[in-house]
Amino acid sequence: PKDEAKKKVKEAIKRGDEETAKRIAKKYNLDWDDAKREADEER
């Protein structure tokens, strides 16, 4: 599900692992900028 994928993307971003985050986002066709902004807001 997309929500689960987005959570994984945000967790990867918070760990500083943007490569993984981008790969997950691409795989699930998520909006990378959107997920990154959300992760930054939660930090």
Rank of each mutant, 00 (worst) to 15 (best):
D3C: 10
D3E: 14
E4T: 09
E4V: 12
A5D: 03
A5R: 03
A5M: 11
A5V: 08
K6Q: 08
K6E: 04
K7C: 14
K7D: 08
K7F: 10
K8P: 02
V9K: 00
K10N: 06
K10T: 08
K10H: 11
K10E: 06
K10F: 14
K10Q: 12
K10P: 01
E11N: 07
E11K: 03
E11Y: 04
E11S: 05
E11D: 13
E11P: 00
A12K: 02
A12H: 07
A12L: 15
I13K: 01
K14Q: 12
K14P: 00
R15M: 11
R15Y: 05
G16E: 02
G16L: 02
G16W: 02
D17I: 00
D17Q: 04
D17E: 05
D17Y: 05
E18H: 13
E18Q: 08
E18T: 10
E18W: 15
E19P: 05
E19R: 09
T20A: 12
T20I: 07
T20H: 09
A21C: 02
A21Y: 01
A21K: 00
A21I: 00
K22C: 08
K22N: 03
R23N: 11
R23G: 07
I24D: 02
I24V: 04
I24N: 01
I24H: 01
I24W: 05
I24S: 01
A25L: 02
A25K: 01
K26Y: 10
Y28E: 03
Y28Q: 02
Y28P: 02
N29C: 09
N29P: 02
N29M: 07
N29E: 09
N29A: 09
L30C: 02
L30T: 02
L30G: 00
D31Y: 03
W32Y: 15
W32F: 15
D33R: 05
D34A: 14
D34Y: 05
A35D: 03
A35G: 03
A35P: 02
K36H: 05
K36N: 06
R37K: 10
R37A: 10
E38C: 00
E38V: 04
E38G: 06
E38I: 04
A39L: 11
A39C: 04
A39V: 14
A39Q: 05
A39E: 05
D40S: 10
D40V: 09
E41F: 11
E41Y: 11
E41I: 10
E41S: 12
E41N: 13
E41M: 13
E42T: 08
E42A: 08
R43P: 11
R43S: 14
R43Q: 14
